[in-house]
């Protein structure tokens, strides 16, 4: 099966695709290489993410899509052996610049993880934690407002409004994930990174999350890693296909799924490997 896949020896130029001129570029990635110790995980990634759109990152396991995602809010910093080179800009600002405060960056670039990971605290405290440590609210009323708005935006408020004091870990899986989304948007980020946010959820909860992502697009730029190609097709406007550490192809989601340029993309979306 894998015979058809040719391992690229040379970096692939994925920049054949140009975003439409009128779109504002939110996250700009240029020549990003990531090493884990001796092993190189990403090779010369170039990618533009337009503001207020959903971009899906797809590709087989171990292709580097999560690694790329974690570069965008510098989560790789906590891995001792990880080394990132190249340039990633958020609104024209180099996020790997020495003067960038990583704490502030992570408030501006929120993240939702694969497994719902609410803090073992109350629902309210889960959402209020970010605003509290960043001092986003001056008083209790403001904080409550942020919490309520965030929960509303995450579509969870109506389900939990009577038990904000209950533990966040007592919610169902889907609710927990929406709580994590509420927690992420409570710090008023500009970009939300989602690392397979629905992979641990049942189809109904997944559908709720997908709807939510579509709504969140109004206010946030969303970059989502997903294993499900149907999901990528349903929720994203642009799709990037990663393979073995290379960004193979970027394009309009429809074009990627109907008329991919690269052979590997075609093999992947038709289910020949991955």
């Amino acid at each position: 099966m894998n015979m058809n896949v040719e391992t690229p020896k040379e970096p692939v130029d994925a920049m054949t695709f140009q975003l439409p001129e009128e779109l504002q570029v939110k996250v700009k990635t240029r020549d990003v290489n990531v090493h884990y110790g001796e092993k190189q995980a990403l090779f010369d990634i170039n990618l533009d993410v337009p503001a207020n759109h959903v971009v899906s990152l797809i590709g087989p396991s171990g292709c580097g899509k999560s690694t790329y995602l974690r570069c965008l809010n510098r989560m790789n910093d906590i891995i001792d052996i990880a080394r990132v080179s190249g340039k990633i800009e958020l609104d024209g600002l180099d996020i790997y610049d020495k003067n960038i405060d990583v704490v502030e960056l992570r408030a501006r670039v929120g993240m939702v993880f694969q497994k719902p990971n609410p803090f073992p605290k109350s629902i309210f405290d889960n959402v209020a934690y970010g605003p509290r440590i960043h001092g986003l609210a001056d008083n209790k009323t403001e904080l409550e407002e942020i919490v309520v708005t965030s929960l509303q935006k995450a579509g969870l408020f109506d389900e939990v409004k009577d038990r904000l004091k209950d533990s966040g870990t007592g919610l169902s899986g889907g609710q927990q994930q929406r709580l994590c989304i509420a927690r992420a948007i409570a710090t008023r980020p500009e970009v939300i990174l989602m690392d397979e946010p629905a992979s641990a959820l049942d189809p109904i909860a997944t559908a709720v999350i997908e709807e939510l992502i579509d709504e969140l697009r109004q206010n946030f730029t969303i970059i989502i890693v997903t294993h499900s190609m149907q999901q990528a097709a349903r929720i994203s406007q642009y799709t990037a296909f990663f393979h073995l550490g290379y960004l193979v192809e970027v394009g309009d989601t429809e074009q990627i799924f109907t008329n991919p340029v690269d052979r590997r993309t075609q093999d992947y979306i038709t289910g020949r490997f991955g």
Partner: peptide, 22 residues
């Protein structure tokens, strides 16, 4: 679990906040 650390880092907690709060 590392997921708790990631969650805290993900909302922008500094390292000492991750340790002391979570």
């Amino acid at each position: 679990p590392p997921s708790i650390r990631e969650a805290a880092l993900g909302v922008g907690a500094s390292r000492h906040e991750v340790v002391l709060h979570h």
